[in-house]
Design a protein around this nucleic acid. Structure first.
Lengths: 110, 110
DNA sequence: CCTTCATTTCGAACTTTGTCGAAATAATGC
DNA sequence: GCATTATTTCGACAAAGTTCGAAATGAAGG
């Protein structure tokens, strides 16, 4: 598993990606999508599974998509949503671990 | 470096930790703190370095502390702030990577 | 081209978050 | 105990995010 293949986000990008994850509903949507696997889910089905539907779900999906955590593609009458979270999360972890923490891991055992 | 030593946060905890990171100002505060190392920084000095001072900084520090990302301890007249980000970020990464992604890493090379 | 189904856009109400200054609390030294 | 320095609490306001329903758009089939 290569970790260095993704560029580190800058402060602004990282903050908005974290903000996108910082909502219980969106995190639930993302989890449902990631569990659904690469094939993704119709947005209607996604709404049914998460209990978030209609314009509210559209709104949250836009935020997740803007953060690069999910994709939406039309297929016939439906919009298929799929997660891209894995790589993104690697980048976000890397952001904090390298950009921030560098050499200052707190030395005492938690 | 052991990764399995921290319990996975639940959806609610994870969302609020991500929300705490989801602000450019707070991320900047956290970065400054983590770079300052385990000794930490007076909150005044932290304000000077980040450009966020007074009640606003107090407010953001409370959010970071509630998320378990920083600690504050009084020392004389000053409050010393220090980051605990490393372990927490491990947990947050682990949350998404195990709780969410499980067996569904997107198979194509980005 | 009209209907139907799936989703999005728009606008309005509402809730939450961010920011500021002034007053309050806490610790120190005289 | 009073003055000084460091930080927090409080109240107010502005800005941003959330939620909803109704109308608009897009795709497919008859």
């Amino acid at each position: 598993m290569k970790i260095e293949s993704h560029p580190l986000p800058d402060l602004t990008q990282a903050a908005s990606a974290f903000a996108a994850l910082g909502s219980e509903q969106r995190l639930s949507v993302l989890r449902t999508l990631v569990r659904a696997g690469p094939e993704g889910l119709r947005i209607g089905e996604l709404g049914t599974r998460t209990g978030v539907t209609g314009s509210t779900l559209t709104h949250h999906m836009k935020i997740l998509a803007a953060a690069g955590l999910v994709t939406q593609t039309r297929q016939g009458r439906s919009i298929i949503c799929a997660a891209v979270a894995f790589d993104q999360v690697q980048s976000l972890s890397a952001f904090l671990l390298t950009e921030c923490c560098a050499d200052s891991v707190t030395p005492d055992k938690a």
